[in-house]
Design a protein around this nucleic acid. Structure first.
Length: 158
DNA sequence: GCCAACGTTGGC
DNA sequence: GCCAACGTTGGC
């Protein structure tokens, strides 16, 4: 099973929102970035585990774990003219945007902050976090792969 | 196909 | 709220 990291703004949809959804499951709609789309459409499989990351908040970091509950399928919110992430170039015949469903697994015991992950990456330039997109400056990718070594390292910090 | 302008992300 | 970094758009 592969691992992933997905970002979300806690004020918009945080891990507590996910945990409170029916079946603790939610479609990950609204992603409008091709790299992220390709991963959701082509690579993410049911049962893959996901680090749930809070961005745009006082203490950005990894706050919990989720899993992929449904593989990539068209993001129908792109078809809806009234939806926030409407895209007139996407239609049901030729959907441009895809999403997966995420299911809540658990909160971490504490937040693994971006600050400490960046510090670790800097202290160990040849370690597992080398090349991890999250700690790269200016990174904006909201869905990214996580290697086994990265997964173990990060959860070992918990 | 280049690239300036623009909009968005996201840390701080 | 600021602004650097980045992706996308569209004129040419």
């Amino acid at each position: 099973m592969a691992h992933w990291l997905m970002k979300s703004e806690p004020d918009v949809f945080g891990i507590d929102h996910l945990a409170a959804r029916p079946n603790r499951t939610e479609p990950w709609d609204g992603v409008r970035n091709y790299q992220a789309r390709n991963m959701m459409r082509d690579e993410m499989k049911v049962g893959d585990s996901v680090l749930f990351y809070h961005s745009n908040t006082a203490e950005p970091g990894i706050v919990g774990i989720a899993e992929v509950a449904r593989e990539g399928y068209p993001d129908h919110t792109a078809f809806d003219p009234d939806a926030k992430y409407h895209d007139p170039k996407s239609d049901p015949e030729h959907p441009r945007w895809f999403m997966v469903d995420l299911r809540y697994v658990r909160h971490l015991k504490r937040t693994i902050t971006l600050t400490e992950l960046k510090a670790l990456a800097e202290q160990h330039p040849d370690g597992p976090l080398a090349g991890f997109p999250l700690v790269r400056r200016g990174n904006r990718l909201s869905v990214m792969p996580v290697t086994d070594a990265q997964w173990e390292l990060i959860l070992g910090l918990e």
